[in-house]
Write a protein that binds this DNA or RNA. Structure first.
Lengths: 115, 115
DNA sequence: TTATTAGGATACCATATGGTATCCTAAATC
DNA sequence: GATTTAGGATACCATATGGTATCCTAATAA
């Protein structure tokens, strides 16, 4: 999944599909300056990561985004929230909700950040 | 930056450094089953992405994490919060504050979703 | 039935990537 | 000064990756 979103083209693909709308490969390709086959490959990689769902409709394949795997990314990101937080400490709170449902909205003092 | 965190070894490195503590290469290497040179390379990539800071102390180099570049990741992630949100919609709010993005809470069009 | 067309499957290429091995530089230590 | 040692630099290797070109399959349209 981390690998999947590491590529700029694939991130663009996700942006394109982020509305949740379903697009056929034919409709997606013109947004990029590469061949249909290349776009298809990228979509396949995204599909392997679970980030898009493919559906065959007649002779065309329609792609729709599935953001669920990105939850892992958010969970990972939560590990580092202490670095910025204070103003945005709510994010950490969210993370904690996932694990233990702690409701504290206290913002971290960033203990040893004594740069 | 996305490329930098795409590698599992580098994510482990960040986990190791996430406390904000400073570590010399010598101290980091034994945590991994690869040569010092390889670890150094990874750290360099993280450094290029701004995710760690290097500091020469005598003949050793000490590494310390800098999570700031991950803010970009969070901003990117915020684009997709609508998929999970409701309960967690605050993230989107943050994103909108950063840019101005449209915040339609409408859910899937699914117009042609005959699945 | 015959074209036409969307898109999958291969084959292939160039380059990027992760890794080791080897050598070199410079700071501690004797 | 001579020795040891941390770690950078380079060369090199194997594999992964992004991409195109080409062919094949199947659904639609004539």
């Amino acid at each position: 999944m981390f690998q999947a979103i590491a590529d700029p083209t694939r991130r663009e693909l996700l942006q394109l599909l982020r509305t949740g709308e379903e697009f056929p490969l034919k409709g997606i390709t013109p947004h990029f300056s590469m061949t249909r086959a290349a776009v298809s490959k990228h979509l396949h990689i995204l599909s392997d990561a679970g980030l898009v769902h493919e559906r065959r409709v007649g002779r065309e394949t329609r792609y729709r985004m599935n953001a669920d795997p990105l939850l892992e990314l958010r969970r990972w990101l939560a590990f580092f929230e202490r670095y910025w937080d204070n103003k945005l400490g709510m994010l950490k709170m969210i993370a904690e909700t996932e694990h233990e449902a702690a409701g504290a909205k206290s913002d971290q003092p960033a203990a040893q950040d004594g740069k």
